[in-house]
């Protein structure tokens, strides 16, 4: 391939995009390195899809610019389309074609053959090969995504854009999917993945947290956690929901959220007085209360950042 040794980085400068009155992206800046596994994490409607479509040369920005492999994605979009792999959010294969027919079709679209690229897709292909004559519409969610990934990889792209590949897929298939992405990363492909699942952030080299068209933070997952600021406590009792309601009334509460089997609590002071907390809850009638200091997760950070940015408005 001609593009073998190119620098597969992505630079985004001051990118903005509006649909009518709705500003979908506000002044986005990103610098994604060649070979990086980069996560774009945010809820539905945050602007992830718009950003992907802009990068994939499917939309024109209102302002700002983006470069993929150091090539401008507006003026030289045709060049970019040769080395870009793109998986849209909606399952975008032909449901009335079989697995192998889909793959063969996308190979011919890129003027190549499956055999020449088997190397690239073998790890994924072996998992769907047993069903190669089944119609794509009859595959399970996880299988569909694997097939879509194969089709997006068939021309050995340098940059892979995956828009919510794991949404609506069960957690077994999700973890398998991330395994595959790691394999691809080792081949030097730059991968940008959008996902609404916060826990998937830890699987990325770096992530951008995005909400309402704005990037809240870009960093490695570890750094983001470190910048959480306040001490975080897990609170458990015999009735978590009642405890949640109680803590909302508590004078020193900064934030309290349900979080799996416990509640995550931050205090107005950096360090909370665990005894005071326990006494308060005991007075409210909660028993077997456990309070312990814990390390925040990306989801904790996201909630903290998003409530902070909402408060600014």
């Amino acid at each position: 391939m001609i593009y073998k040794n190119m620098d597969a980085s992505i630079q985004v400068n001051n990118l903005s995009k509006s649909y009518g009155n709705v500003q979908a992206l506000k002044n986005i800046n990103l610098d994604i390195k060649s070979g990086e596994l980069f996560g774009l994490i945010g809820p539905d409607g945050a602007g992830k899809t718009t950003l992907f479509r802009l990068l994939a040369t499917l939309l024109l920005p209102d302002e700002g610019s983006a470069k993929l492999c150091e090539i401008d994605n507006v003026s030289e979009y045709k060049k970019i389309r040769n080395f870009l792999g793109y998986m849209p959010g909606k399952f975008s294969l032909y449901q009335d074609l079989s697995v192998i027919e889909n793959l063969r079709f996308f190979a011919t679209v890129f003027n190549t053959r499956i055999e020449d690229n088997m190397d690239m897709i073998r790890d994924i292909w072996v998992q769907i090969e047993p069903f190669k004559n089944r119609l794509a519409g009859q595959l399970s969610g996880g299988m569909k995504q694997k097939l879509a990934l194969c089709c997006a990889l068939i021309h050995q792209p340098k940059i892979l854009l995956l828009d919510e590949p794991t949404t609506g897929v069960d957690s077994v298939s999700r973890s398998e999917f991330w395994q595959m992405l790691k394999g691809l990363k080792e081949r030097g492909v730059t991968i940008v993945v959008a996902t609404p699942y916060m826990d998937e952030a830890n699987l990325c080299d770096r992530v951008a947290l995005i909400q309402d068209g704005e990037i809240l933070q870009v960093n490695t997952p570890d750094e983001i956690v470190e910048q959480f600021g306040k001490k975080l406590y897990a609170v458990k009792s015999n009735d978590n929901y009642q405890t949640l309601l109680d803590l909302r009334e508590f004078k020193s509460t900064n934030s309290v959220f349900l979080f799996g089997q416990s509640l995550h609590y931050t205090d107005t002071k950096n360090e909370a007085s665990i005894d005071e907390l326990k006494t308060y809850l005991a007075n409210k009638g909660r028993s077997s209360t456990v309070v312990e200091k814990i390390k925040p997760s990306i989801e904790d950070c996201f909630m903290a950042l998003s409530t902070k940015s909402k408060a600014h408005e």
Binding site: R53, L58, Y86, K90, F91, F110, C151
Partner: peptide, 14 residues
């Protein structure tokens, strides 16, 4: 409607 046009457009097909 199915989103496959997106993929075709992003390919080098004109």
């Amino acid at each position: 409607e199915l989103g496959t046009m997106e993929v075709l457009l992003v390919s080098p097909l004109n």
